[in-house]
Design a protein around this nucleic acid. Structure first.
Length: 498
DNA sequence: TACCGGTTTAAATAC
DNA sequence: GTATTTCCAACCGGTA
């Protein structure tokens, strides 16, 4: 693992060196230009970048983007050149936002076109990249075979084969079942550092054929951890760099796990297509993509947020947007869908609200939500319970909101300290496998379990093995009782039932 | 309302 | 262990 970090740092240093060379080249170039014009252009770039970072235009899609990025393809640069392009002054635009100028250069991942998986692999040895590809393809093949039949997938774990839920297994629909929160255990072998730095997104592969977790960090790295050491390739960690900025969302197609979508603050949405061994470009936005989600009822659409309050519904088959609307006044932090009602969606936003929407009624210019859950500060998540009867909202106002009722009209607020500060990601209360509990990290490196019935924190799980605050959690969709927590230092902890 | 700048604050690394 | 460094968030309140 230390070697991986070293390799990662080596790649970063290489990148910085490339950037330095480009900066040096630019200096020579700028001598040829009028100094005042260069200064004005520089100031304009700064201003534009700040306005797009701190306060993206209110109606991003109805106005022309201020900064246009020129397609590298149109400039004759091969689209699959993962590391071929250095940063370029006319492409940095809104990227000029950091104090350290080294970070302001356009990164090699920000090219409009596919990136080879091998080119973005940070482990050095391409044999390991190939190993991950083989592992995912093997499982994907199994899943396809089994979802074509009527019996459900063949499962390699004894536990699920014996469970009643196994018979009900449907790709895209998470399993439900009650568990004893006091039976959670953290085993030393279920701890790993999957990426360097802060984890922003965490997902399990939606399959019962292996236990694979994916983590996206703030540098645009995506790490894979094949958790179960008993399986072939188990314990392996694989690190890629397909983006340049924080990974805001990960979506894996439950019907085809060799297709994984990632969204990023850099405005890119990529599709890791394991069969083609590429991170393909699905979409590029001039505005920050803060979140991405997929409806379990419609896996051929991606929903993602853009800039200040916009939501874009993307048709992955047609490769085009099929709906754009403004749903909030500030950035949208999460998008979630009701598992029981295909028309219901929830969004959480830094405009201090979470909103519940009827998808049939958001085509309007000024769509009206079915329900607004109001907090006093930014709302960082809004998730439906497994049955869809509850909505849990997590806000920086130190409250976890619980909304229920036919139209979610009954809202109660549970106190939970949520001020995570500047070094770690915000907390998000998630659901497990029934409607009884919400799982959320705390500032003392513990895992709080909030009882819905009692409307308070009833249990706090902890372990001496946990060395940092777990800010993001993910429940395994098909493996009841498997809960992953992620830290600001790149570690992932997986709690299991016995 | 856009913008500026102060503030919060954890964890890796260096000693 | 303890001190030092990090400086790719995000919020809030003051100001023009």
């Amino acid at each position: 693992m230390g070697e991986k970090l070293t390799e990662y740092e080596r790649r970063r240093l290489e990148n910085i060196k490339r950037n330095d060379e480009m900066v040096a080249a630019l200096k020579i170039h700028s001598r040829l230009n009028d100094l005042s014009a260069a200064a004005a252009a520089s100031k304009r770039q700064r201003d534009e970048s700040k306005s797009s970072k701190r306060s993206p235009v209110k109606k991003p899609r109805s106005e022309s983007p201020v900064v246009l990025r020129r397609s590298l393809r149109s400039r004759g640069v091969p689209p699959d050149a993962a590391t071929a392009s250095g940063p370029n002054d006319d492409l940095t635009g809104r990227k000029l936002t950091f104090k350290n100028p080294q970070w302001n250069s356009r990164e090699s991942t920000e090219v409009e076109g596919p990136l080879k998986m091998s080119g973005t692999y940070l482990g050095g040895d391409d044999g390991l990249n190939q190993k991950l590809i083989r592992t995912i393809l093997q499982c994907s093949k199994k899943s396809v075979l089994s979802s074509d039949g009527d019996k459900g997938p063949r499962d390699s774990t004894v536990k699920l084969e014996k469970s009643e839920e196994f018979e009900k297994f449907i790709p895209g629909k998470r399993l439900t079942g009650s568990i004893d929160v006091n039976a959670f255990q953290l085993k030393p072998e279920n701890i790993a550092r999957v990426v360097p730095s802060r984890i922003m997104s965490l997902k399990f592969f939606p399959t019962v054929d292996m236990e694979m977790v994916v983590a996206g960090n703030k540098f645009g790295d995506v790490g894979f951890w094949n958790v179960n050491r008993k399986n072939e390739g188990g314990g392996g960690i694989y690190l890629y760099h397909p983006h340049s900025r924080p990974i805001s969302g990960i979506v894996i197609d439950p019907f085809c796990i060799s297709k994984m979508y990632t969204s990023c603050y850099d405005g890119f949405i990529r599709l890791m297509d394991v069969e083609k061994e590429i991170f393909d470009m699905v979409y590029y936005s001039d505005y920050t993509v803060y979140s991405m989600s997929q409806s379990p009822h419609d896996v051929k659409s991606l929903y993602f947020s853009e800039g200040r309050g916009g939501v874009n519904k993307w048709d992955v088959r047609a490769g085009k947007s099929c709906l754009k609307c403004d749903l909030h006044d500030e950035r949208i932090n999460t998008i979630d869908f009701n598992s029981e009602n295909e028309n219901i969606m929830a969004t959480s936003s830094s405009d201090n609200t979470a909103r519940i929407w009827d998808l049939r009624r958001i085509n309007a210019v000024k769509p009206t939500p079915l329900k607004i859950v109001s907090h006093k500060r930014a709302v960082h998540s809004a998730y439906f319970s497994p049955t869809g009867k509850f909505l849990a909202t997590t806000s920086l106002d130190d409250k976890v909101g619980l909304s229920s009722g036919a139209n979610y009209e009954d809202t109660s607020m549970v106190y939970h300290y949520n001020r995570t500060g500047c070094w770690i990601s915000t907390f998000r209360g998630i659901w497990g496998w029934d409607d009884s509990s919400i799982y959320i990290g705390n500032m003392k490196r513990g895992l709080d379990v909030i009882s819905v019935e009692e409307a308070k924190t009833v249990t706090t799980l902890g372990s001496d093995l946990v060395s940092a605050i777990t800010c993001r959690y993910e429940a395994h969709p098909y493996n009841v009782g498997m809960l992953a927590g992620a830290t600001g230092g790149g570690q992932v902890y997986i709690w299991t039932q016995s």
